[in-house]
Amino acid sequence: MTTTTPAGLEIRGLTHSFGSTTALDDVTVAVRPGTVTGLVGRNGAGKTTLAALVAALRPVQAGAILLDGAPPWEDPEVTSRICLVRDKGGVVEDERIRVTFEFAAMLRPGWDADYAHALLDRFEVPFRKKPQQLSTGKRSALSAILGLASRSDLTIFDEVYLGMDAVARRMFYDELIADWIAHPRTIILSSHLLDEVEDLMEDVVILDRGRVVAAGETDAVRARHSRDGAVASLTDVLVSLSTPSTDRSTP
């Protein structure tokens, strides 16, 4: 069985623009190896762009991304250690799931086919179907399965479980923690469902309009924003740190 090596991620001065829109602005942050780190922010905060750059899905425009000291761009040794799963993309939509699994088996050293098939059974995803034929919930489950069974040293789940129902999400969280304990690796969870996932997050990075507005151990971040003896939730922290909607139209 392939063993995982939790990867440390370091991001320095990362700036990324789409035309005149700055998606990320001088982001500097580190993710400790072996942790479950939350990537939190409102819509348009830059979470997905950051995840895509870390996974080398786009070239870096300015700044640096280092996985255990090495940049992932065009380095197969590094890209094979990173798995980014999203609710869309990353699979061959018009071919049977088998083809997507073959890709993972070819390119992901930690891929566990038996575990993947066990998860397909558990989430009741039909193996013989094409991803485009699956319902939204099953399609999300398939992405989650790819992320879990890849057992990559750095695995990023970007809103992958939004399409799942409450029961499937609970199964996913349970599976994630159980497998993370059995095969320690670095996990980044990006989610809007903060109430459900904040207890899973040891560390948290909060983005607002492309900038890091808070980062560190989740309990410490929450404690800093707690008032009058009541411990703040991550949602409370996000509300207090995010730019109000009325101010979001101007960069």
Partner: peptide, 16 residues
């Protein structure tokens, strides 16, 4: 057309 993006997303490099 069909396989480039999924393969890149699975860790293939552009050069390879």
């Amino acid at each position: 057309g069909s396989f480039t993006r999924p393969l890149l997303a699975t860790g293939a490099t552009r050069s390879a």
